[in-house]
Nucleic acid binder design. Structure first.
Lengths: 216, 216
DNA sequence: GCGGAAAAGTTCGGTGACCGAACTCTTTTC
DNA sequence: GAAAAGAGTTCGGTCACCGAACTTTTCCGC
């Protein structure tokens, strides 16, 4: 959608929401943000969105207060985009649309992603409640895990049996077959990952290589 | 969004959903369909969407199996667009986005629309459960009622105290002040209405055009 | 039957958004 | 100092959207 030309006359709540998140690519960007994507280049590589459009969307979301843009210290010119409280409120909408797509345009072989409760590993249903303990699960307590439908088509070949223990920090590019040219985000999502935590290593492994300044 | 150019490479469920409902105006059209809007001219008048775009969206939704297009017998060239089972599945997404807009870009004076449980009149929360009886409420058992925020701005002036009994069939254009040029859909939504039931008189059943009040 | 009205689209030119590729700018790394 | 990487920006071509006018079909009153 190309909405911010304001849906004139429509003053209802849905119109106001669509002015913020209704443009093309915006909800996919936000879904990636929930998954832990934080940097411009990661979004660009994973979504294959034109860089100019991505820059425009990120700026718009920051202006709307949905994302916060903060420089990551120590690294080169790296900006991090993280969800604000306002942005976190969009999780039910992202989840509802994802579930609808999963149910009414199903992937062969079953769902590609599963949402699990971090506390007990049970699946979390579309209503946001854990099927194991029955409690409502906020997005930060969710794991996104590969489902049986992953690997059945073009995306990176993750055999469905792959089950790393939850919470593993993924070192991208070392243990995923580099022959299939998947982007780092797709590769990292081949194993369970907790939402809202950085998906890729936020800092280069050696943090500060050379404090050559006068350090007492 | 202008999505149906296919979000190449994105095969996840959210992308598939966005290909169907991600274009500009589409979700607003579907929300109106949930409210009981059924005819081309009603959508056009209420949403102020270009007629060419509306025709394209309706055709796309019919092709996707979200809406069903059926001629209304007896009337002139009138087509009715009604939600299919697949379309009904989108209610959680519409509700989630509406609630987000209500919460994070609130209207002055409070929400413009309230969702009530048809059975007991209690409010239905964002999770779809009735605050009175606690049961989950499917969209067909919801009433959309004017909230305190309605009438605070440009839309038709409905004083917040107006409370018709649920289920009333609204005869458009007779008892709403014609001085404020509101479209029939907006006028009809000034009083509670049950979702998925026709919002405007589906047939000119009685020879209405002559207000001789001869219908006992 | 006939003219008018209404509903449902269709057509058309102008404008803006999106796309893909190449380019710039800054900071870090060798 | 040279090279590389990250984060955008620039640019021309294409496509979607917009608003208004137009066409088509059906119904109504006469």
């Amino acid at each position: 959608m190309t909405l911010p030309r304001d849906y004139r006359g429509q003053t209802c709540a849905l119109s106001r929401a669509m002015e913020v998140v209704g443009e093309r690519w915006t909800l996919l960007i936000l879904r990636d943000a929930f998954y832990g994507v934080r940097r411009f280049g990661e979004f660009a590589a994973h979504l294959a969105v034109p860089r100019a459009v991505l820059a425009d969307r990120l700026a718009g979301l920051v202006a709307a207060g949905v994302l916060d843009r903060r420089p990551e210290p120590g690294t080169g010119r790296r900006e991090a985009y993280v969800l604000t409280e306002k942005g976190l409120g969009l999780w039910p909408a992202v989840r509802a649309l994802t579930d609808w797509g999963e149910q009414h345009a199903p992937a062969p072989g079953g769902p590609r992603r599963l949402f699990l409760h971090h506390a007990d590993g049970a699946r979390v249903g579309p209503d946001g409640h854990c099927s194991g303990c029955g409690t409502p699960v906020p997005p930060g307590d969710l794991l996104v895990a590969p489902g049986p439908g992953l690997g059945a088509d073009a995306e990176g070949g993750a055999d469905p049996g792959t089950e790393a223990d939850p919470g593993t920090v993924v070192d991208p590019g070392t243990d995923v077959d580099p022959g299939t040219d998947v982007d780092p985000v797709t590769a990292a999502l081949a194993r369970p990952h907790r939402l809202l935590t950085p998906l890729l290593a936020p800092l280069p492994a050696a943090p500060v290589r050379r404090p050559s300044k006068g350090t007492p």
